[in-house]
Design a protein around this nucleic acid. Structure first.
Lengths: 112, 112
DNA sequence: TCCGTAGTTCAATATCATCGAACTATTGAG
DNA sequence: CTCAATAGTTCGATGATATTGAACTACGGA
């Protein structure tokens, strides 16, 4: 067993950390993909292709520590889930507005 | 005359840059203060006390380049104004949600 | 003209991000 | 059980960015 992932209690997460996590194009894209798919995604699926795995790991760690995702080991892979509802309750409107803006910024339409 | 400040056209500003600018505690506080006051503020007034001026300058530059404020020289001081309306039009809900969250995060109630 | 105020620029150091290489854990095949 | 493949993690080095003191610029007032 590897050392388990740590997920901060929702009431301890900081707005600055959430914004910081989402300020990176790669991380914003990860969150956007998980959100668009509507279901948990493993690390490789959510991250852009051709991105080194060590860099991916780093980004997932930051998203986790910011309180935006939970990560769970499922056999050989790690499944990541948005903590949307919790975050939305703590910082109302923040995530939803950012996700809408990110969706528009990408394409006129996306089957999402 | 010093070299004038550059303000990006609103349609060119990037969501990531906006989030990045607001992800820093100092910059978030600056924006919060200008917003709370409801009127333009000079650099020293909006930034936390005891922060070196060179650091302040740096933060204002980032806020400007992100498209969040306009800066204008008025005699010896620089007056900073939020571009809230424009930003809100470009990324609906983003700034307002973040400002609300920041206000709550600071104090139970703030006259804002 | 000289001084004080407000802010900028520069250069040095400290902090953080990226990525290849080596490693760990788990699953499935033989 | 052993071997190999898959999915991620950890480590170390390098490059980028933040912070800050010191020197500088610009303006307004005595």
């Amino acid at each position: 067993m590897q050392r388990p992932f740590l997920h901060p209690p929702i009431e301890t997460i900081k707005l600055e950390s959430v914004l910081y996590a989402l300020a990176d194009p790669v991380r914003l894209e990860i969150i956007r993909r998980i959100s668009a798919g509507g279901c948990p995604l493993n690390c490789s699926a959510a991250a852009p292709d051709n991105l080194p795995k060590s860099t991916q790991s780093h980004h997932y760690q930051i998203l986790r520590e910011a309180g935006l995702i939970t990560s769970e080991r499922r056999g050989t892979e790690v499944v990541n889930t948005l903590r949307c509802a919790e975050v939305e309750k703590r910082f109302p409107g923040v995530i939803s507005a950012i996700l809408s803006a990110a969706a528009v910024a990408r394409k006129p339409e996306c089957k999402s």
